[in-house]
């Protein structure tokens, strides 16, 4: 290598910083990222790519286990868009007569919407009540109300499944006790919460198990919203209320004009988080109603799990998951847009 004499400069030449020096900071950034990138490319990104490939094949149980005769895997066959067609036209096989993609999607969206509405409104109302000056035992109530958040979801779901049991469940037994006080025969409350097929409310196409799970999930979800709202409430300066009062605002006006607008910055991200988690809430649906009756309370995650777990339709399950990717992408883009609109409104 010939050495270059850098002391002699041509006119207009600036100090040359070598590429190596210029990228020093970027290099250490990549170095810090390296372990995560290696691991994620092996166990996160590769499966996602493989998923796309699988969705175009008839990958099934026979492609997983080597055949006993020649110890070779039977490679899955390329079948193009057949899996996607089957999902959209609900022809996934004789073993899944209740599969209905668009009904499941519609139910999933309604499930998310109805739950989050209850979570946010109950959460805010309870937070406001708990924030009233002079209320006794506040700390005790706050300690009790956090319990649903603290317990593992899996345990909550299995416990509520037993509570909704038609014969031995606590809900029916409590209703019988309560009904007895008004002279209602106990037989009235042999409600088959999770199995009953006719809709409880005429004209509303939602099975009874939906309402059972709605109750469970409301119980589960509002304390988080209360916590977030309490934090935000406590940072609202009380001078605002004093000023509003001097101007003659009623407590209700103060709630709508001061409390709610100032809660919004904290509640919007919490609501988005709630939408995404409720949309993918596997435990409640899979453990309580198991998608029943007749697959009408199935959501996308539980349906995808059943395609793979119960029926070994791996290729089909992969195609279903690709649909889920697209739907979740759209959903998060929509919520991000809505939240940006909400933030812009604040300014």
């Amino acid at each position: 290598m010939a050495s270059v004499d850098r002391t002699i400069k041509r006119p207009g030449q600036i100090d040359e910083v070598s590429f190596w020096d210029r990228t020093k900071r970027a290099r250490s950034a990549y170095l810090y990222l390296l372990p995560a990138i290696i691991i994620m490319s092996i166990i996160t990104f590769t499966p996602i790519l493989y998923q796309f490939y699988m969705s175009f094949t008839d990958f099934g149980a026979r492609s997983l286990n080597p055949s006993p005769t020649n110890k070779a895997y039977l490679e899955p066959e390329w079948i193009g868009l057949e899996n996607y067609r089957k999902i959209v036209t609900n022809e996934v096989g004789a073993k899944l007569p209740n599969f209905n993609f668009f009904r499941t999607l519609g139910f999933n969206l309604w499930w998310t919407f109805s739950n989050v509405i209850f979570h946010v409104s109950i959460g805010v109302v309870v937070a406001v009540i708990l924030n009233i000056e002079g209320l006794r035992f506040k700390r005790l109530y706050r300690a009790i109300y956090i319990l649903p958040m603290v317990l593992p979801q899996l345990v909550i779901a299995t416990v509520w499944k037993n509570m909704f049991d038609g014969e031995y469940g606590a809900i029916n037994q409590a209703l019988k006790l309560g009904g007895g006080l008004f002279g209602i025969a106990p037989e009235t409350f042999n409600i088959r919460w999770l199995q009953q097929i006719p809709d409880p409310i005429p004209g509303v196409p939602l099975p009874l198990s939906y309402f059972a799970m709605l109750i469970t999930n409301i119980w589960l979800g509002w304390p988080f919203m209360t916590l977030v709202a309490t934090g935000a409430l406590q940072s609202i300066p009380k001078e605002l209320y004093e000023a509003a009062e001097i101007d003659g605002a009623t407590p209700l006006q103060q709630f709508w004009k001061i409390t709610l607008p100032l809660l919004r910055p904290a509640m919007v991200p919490a609501t988005i988080l709630g939408i995404i988690t409720t949309f993918n809430l596997f435990h409640i649906i899979y453990f309580i109603s198991e998608g029943g009756p007749l697959g009408r309370t199935e959501i996308l995650v539980t349906q995808a799990y059943k395609l793979i777990n119960g029926n070994q339709l791996y290729g089909l399950g992969a195609a279903f998951s690709v649909f889920m990717f697209v739907i979740l992408g759209l959903l998060s883009a929509a919520t991000a847009r809505v939240s940006r609109v909400a933030e812009a409104y604040d300014d």
């Binding site: 994620m40 166990i43 996160t44 590769t46 499966p47 996602i48 493989y50 998923q51 699988m54 990958f59 492609s63 997983l64 286990n65 895997y73 995404i276 993918n280 596997f282 995650v301 995808a304 799990y305 793979i308 791996y314 290729g315 399950g317 992969a318 998951s321 889920m324 990717f325 979740l328 992408g329 998060s332």
Partner: peptide, 23 residues
Amino acid sequence: SVGFILLMPGIATLAPLFAMLSR
């Protein structure tokens, strides 16, 4: 992309993980 993967429930990549790890 990290955030997008975070949105996905674990079950969304169950099929490929099962197929790949099985081998």
